[in-house]
Design a protein around this nucleic acid. Structure first.
Lengths: 325, 325
DNA sequence: TTGTAAGCGTTATCAC
DNA sequence: GTGATAACGCTTACAA
């Protein structure tokens, strides 16, 4: 592997000049040409690690998500990676699998100088590991005053779901969902939902389980029975698409027809790039916009420029086959 | 950020000793304790870039795929990333978006010392960019004698699809698919299919389009009409799940009932980690095994140990709602 | 405009 | 066992 020294020698100039050339400095045309020729001849490529060691900038950022194996996160990762290319930066993928140790390990990577910064989507309490030194942007979860956060307008999304269910003829509504203690975004979903119902005098149930995914899933059959049988609910807003599919299945088991008897709206609306049919009505998060905002924000933090502490992006309603009309 | 020098000074030993400690060498107990204390006090972490510069090993590998925003690739990436953790290595995610320039850019990353090796899933003709110096493992595509390849048993999968269609009562079969000129894996799918049909005296049509995704998609409506209307085919094996969904949609438009009139089997069978209902019958690739084999193989190549040049892994049939019984 | 040389944080090779 | 020290490939003053 050719180094900058080899280039300098072949071009008969100094390493300083080659370095200047590589970093866009001004040189005599003759020098420039000689260097370019030498680079070509030697098939020279800059060693990232030497540069990183010297400059403390690696043009690599880490994306921390629960799992890439999920339509929402894979779409998000897709757009973030694409966006990073505009900044000549690479993406290190970190699946935490909701494992606290994994999260901490990945966050400490930043301290080892492996990455310039972090984009994190986590619901664990990792605050203490996030030093204020380290450039970080959070998606969906609000950490503290100092960490810029990008999120969808969950509150408005909740309201939109209620509105659409009512417009579609539902009379009695319910929200079903869960979230961690640190998760404000899912709370905002039902708060928006609730606010809409109160303002418009609509009967509604709120079922919010504070805890983990699988615990919630265990309770779900009972909850669904409850609101359908006992409460005569005919419009359900579910905290996310994944759980909405779960609810749909349970409704089917209970011989409830969707959308004839009960209508259902989910949240996320991440699409398959493939055309796997997605029939669920959903409140769609603006994933490309989230990705763009997160990357731009992080780059600004890294370069110590101004970055907005809170970015809230509008959601849209995406009708499917689980609502009428 | 504390460096090894700071640790040495605080522990009142030399940097050499600290380095030896960090890399598992033997030291007097007293020295060890002093170093451990200093590391703790200073919150010291090794600088990856200095190590990388010195050792030419970065514990980072790049995964090159068309797009992470696809169930098959996101499942693959999930398992690869998880597997890499066993080797203390990180994953850089590279979406080529089927763009040749992107692929080349990512491959050249390896030469810049940014990654120890590459796991590539690409159908472009990037051979020339892949120097023999660089550790690389290919998934699904066979490059050359020198590059280890991991693939599913596509040939057997094709045969399995034919067998299952026949078992389910189909009488006249067809294969529909496409692939790039360099793509042998999709070819093997129909070859296995064809071989089964010939061996068992089954009437079959093979439609294989050599070219790109979107071109094939344009032709698809015509092709489907052809085999349904003119050829009276009642069992279709489609080259992958994505296209199979496309075919299902076209059948529906043509008022053909699935599976009553025509049965369909896809290929890939990647599941959603979420429970989005997947109703397509499919030949499932063993994604976790592919991931494990690819990582192990790459690590061996990097460490200049023996690695198998060809690994072929068994597929399974995953019945859904698009076949009878 | 160009060259020289120090130094980034490690590892590794020597002596001691 | 331990301590100096050169070297990895690059950037960046500073000198020429």
């Amino acid at each position: 592997m050719a180094s900058i020294k080899d280039v300098a020698k072949l071009a008969q100039v100094s390493v300083g000049s080659v370095s200047k050339y590589l970093n866009g400095g001004k040189l005599k045309e003759k020098t420039t040409i000689a260097i370019e020729q030498a680079i070509k001849d030697l098939n020279y490529e800059k060693n990232t690690y030497a540069t990183g060691l010297r400059t403390n900038r690696t043009h690599t950022i880490a994306l921390i998500i629960p799992t890439i194996w999920h339509p929402f996160f894979s779409e998000l990762a897709f757009y973030i990676e694409a966006e990073l290319r505009n900044y000549q930066s690479k993406l290190i993928l970190c699946n935490t699998q909701n494992n606290y140790e994994n999260e901490v390990a990945y966050i400490s990577m930043a301290r080892q100088n492996k990455v310039d910064g972090l984009i994190a989507l986590t619901y664990s309490n990792v605050d203490e590991y996030i030093s204020s030194e380290m450039p970080i942007v959070s998606i969906d979860r609000y950490f503290s005053e100092k960490i810029p956060t990008i999120m969808s307008d969950n509150f408005a999304g909740g309201g939109l779901a209620a509105e659409k269910l009512i417009q579609a003829g539902a009379k009695k509504l319910a929200f079903i969902g869960y979230g961690s203690i640190y998760d404000n975004s899912t709370r905002d979903r039902y708060r928006g939902f609730q606010a809409y119902c109160q303002t418009h005098g609509i009967e509604s149930e709120i079922i919010y389980y504070e805890g983990r995914h699988h615990e919630f899933n265990e309770k779900l059959p009972e909850l669904v029975q409850q609101i359908i049988i006992n409460k005569a609910v005919n419009g359900i807003f579910v905290v996310n698409d994944e759980q909405a599919y779960e609810v749909l299945e349970l409704l089917q088991k209970n011989k409830v027809r969707v959308p004839e008897d009960v209508q259902v709206i989910g949240f996320d609306g991440s699409q398959q790039s493939t055309n796997i049919p997605s029939s669920l009505s959903s409140i769609r998060q603006p994933i490309p916009a989230i990705a763009a905002a997160a990357v731009k924000c992080l780059i600004n933090v890294i370069e110590k420029k101004e970055a907005p502490l809170k970015t809230i992006l509008p959601v849209t309603y995406h009708p499917g086959a689980t609502t009428k009309e």
